[in-house]
Every structure is written in structure tokens, then in C-alpha cells.
Amino acid sequence: MASIGPNELFFLAQGLKWTLALTLIGFVGGGIFGLIVALARTAESAALRRVTTGYIAVFQGTPLLMQLFVVYYGVALIGLNIDAWLAVAIAFTLHASAFLGEIWRGGIQAVPKGQTEAAKALGLHYVSTMKDVVLPQAFKISLPATIGFLVQLIKGTSLAAIVGFVELSRAGQIVSNQTFRPLTVFAIVGLAYFLICWPLSLWGARTERRLQTATR
């Protein structure tokens, strides 16, 4: 059995870098589109609500693995060739937008209606009402759930290996095959995931407790 040296650790670090990059792209892109989805879900237009309800149902009701397959191989069926990096970035952005949109929809609807009515009484238009009154409160309410989803998204990046994207889990598999030390390699991989996700989980739990205390 080969030893795990600096080259192997560097390769794992490169995989970790792409895991974090993919998480950042999926979370930021999903956040932008998720905000649009949340606003559409709470809009007065019944058509908008139906469309976004269907969108959320599709992405929440199907496995992320299948969504990666559909984006990567489905785009090729219409004559477009995209690399694995772009395919997984699109898939994770769409996936995150559905979940974040629903989380933030719940936050928007949790804001007391009196806040919106007071804004209307003051003559604020829709954009100002949402930007200055509703959304700041909604994001605060939904912060624990948003952090929880971020943790799930980080762990979900391991599925990107199925279309050839080399992130942390796939890098661990490659190093394990080269060194024949699967237990040691995946202990390192698991520790890396734990050191990223555990502080976020603690932050989310602390934020939730703070919000519960504030509402008493």
C-alpha cells in the first residue's frame, strides 16, 4: 500500500476547493433566483403562484442526483455540449433556488400583515415595502432554515462526481484507489466535511435559539 503524502493531501485540498466553489455558486445563484421564486410565490397573481408552486414541486420532489443527470445529459440532447463544471453549477443553482425560495416564502408570510398594511398606509409602493419592511424581517426569521439548507448543499456537492466533476468526495475516491487506504482517506474527507458543516450547524442552532428568545 502506498503512503498518503503531500501530493495526495494537495489533491484532496484541490477537491475541497472545488466543493466550496460549487457550494458558493449554487448558494449565491440559488439565492438570487430563490428570491424571485419567493416573491412570485407571495404575489397577488394566481398564475405566478401556480407556476412557482410547480417549479418548487419538481425540484423538491425529485432527487438531486436525477437533476444533475437531466441537466448534464439533457442539454446534450438539444445539441449543446457543456462541461461538467457548468452542468453541476446550473443544476445546483436550480436546486437551491427552489428550496431557498420556499424557505424565504415562509419567512415573508411569517411577517405580520400589519407591517405591510402600515407600509401601504404610509404610501410606500411594493418595491419599497418589500425591500425596507418585509424582506429584512423575513430573512431574519428564515435565517436558521437557510443555514440548515447551506449545510445540506455542502454535503450534496458530493453527488457532482456522478457526471465527472472532481470535488472532495471524488478526489477522496481517486486517492483511495491509488493508495489502497480507503479508511484513512475517507476519514480525512469526512473530517474536512465535519469541520465545515459543524460550525455552520452550531451557528444555525444558536440563531434559532436567539429568535425563539426574542419572540417570547
Rank of each mutant, 00 (worst) to 15 (best):
F27W: 12
V28K: 13
G30Y: 04
G30I: 05
I32G: 08
F33M: 12
F33S: 04
L35H: 03
L35Y: 01
I36P: 01
I36L: 15
I36F: 15
I36W: 14
A38T: 03
L39E: 00
L39W: 01
A40Q: 09
R41F: 10
T42R: 10
T42K: 04
T42Y: 07
E44V: 09
S45Y: 03
S45I: 05
A46V: 13
A47S: 14
L48N: 07
L48C: 09
L48T: 00
R49H: 09
R50L: 11
R50Y: 08
R50Q: 13
R50D: 10
R50F: 10
T53I: 00
T53D: 14
G54P: 05
Y55D: 03
I56E: 09
A57R: 02
V58Q: 01
V58S: 06
F59T: 03
F59D: 00
Q60A: 02
G61C: 02
G61E: 07
T62M: 10
T62Y: 07
L64E: 09
L64T: 07
M66L: 15
L68K: 06
L68Q: 11
F69Q: 00
V70T: 08
V71G: 03
G74N: 12
G74T: 08
V75N: 06
V75S: 12
V75Y: 02
L77R: 14
L77S: 15
L80P: 02
L80T: 04
N81I: 03
I82C: 09
I82F: 11
D83I: 03
A84I: 00
A84S: 12
L86S: 11
L86E: 08
L86R: 05
L86N: 05
L86K: 05
A87E: 08
A87T: 14
I90N: 13
I90C: 11
I90P: 00
A91E: 08
A91S: 14
F92A: 04
F92K: 09
F92V: 08
L94C: 05
L94A: 06
A96D: 14
A98M: 09
L100E: 15
G101M: 12
G101P: 13
E102M: 11
I103V: 10
W104S: 03
R105A: 15
R105P: 14
R105N: 13
G106V: 05
G106S: 10
G106N: 04
G106H: 03
I108T: 07
I108M: 13
I108C: 07
A110Q: 07
K113E: 12
K113Y: 09
Q115E: 15
Q115K: 11
A119K: 02
K120W: 10
K120R: 14
A121V: 13
A121K: 08
L122R: 07
L122E: 04
L122I: 07
G123H: 06
G123Q: 05
L124M: 10
L124W: 01
Y126S: 03
S128W: 04
